[in-house]
């Protein structure tokens, strides 16, 4: 069976994960945010919500930039991982 959940799909991809975190979120802003567009915009399900708290894990990031564009509160501090790190597509 092929995976249907994003987390499981990401497992087939090749990543060279950087030790440095390339995306940070401003939790103080996220706490007050009602829309949480990031949750839906991220195609790699990197954003998770627990109670009133947004958490972010950068490891599965596909570097598309959606989260930063969709966040109208500028709470996503998005940068690219260092050169050579991150997603490494074999097909693309």
């Amino acid at each position: 069976m092929n995976p249907a959940k994003v987390e499981d799909k990401l497992a087939v991809n090749k990543f060279d994960i950087d030790k440095e975190v390339h995306i940070r979120i401003r939790e103080d802003i996220c706490k007050k945010c009602e829309e949480h567009y990031c949750l839906y915009a991220c195609p790699a399900s990197c954003f998770k919500i627990t109670e009133d708290h947004i958490t972010f894990s950068y490891e599965g990031c596909l570097e598309c930039g959606s989260c930063q564009i969709v966040c109208d509160k500028e709470a996503v501090d998005w940068a690219l991982p260092r050169g050579g790190f991150g997603i490494c597509y074999q097909y693309g």
Partner: peptide, 26 residues
């Protein structure tokens, strides 16, 4: 994407296939 893949008209074309990569871009 999952909904699309499960559409009866689509699913038959994919049957037996194996996922090689999942990707996203704007």
């Amino acid at each position: 994407l999952e909904e699309f893949k499960q559409h009866s008209e689509v699913a038959t074309y994919l049957a037996g296939g194996k996922l090689l990569e999942y990707s996203a871009h704007l």
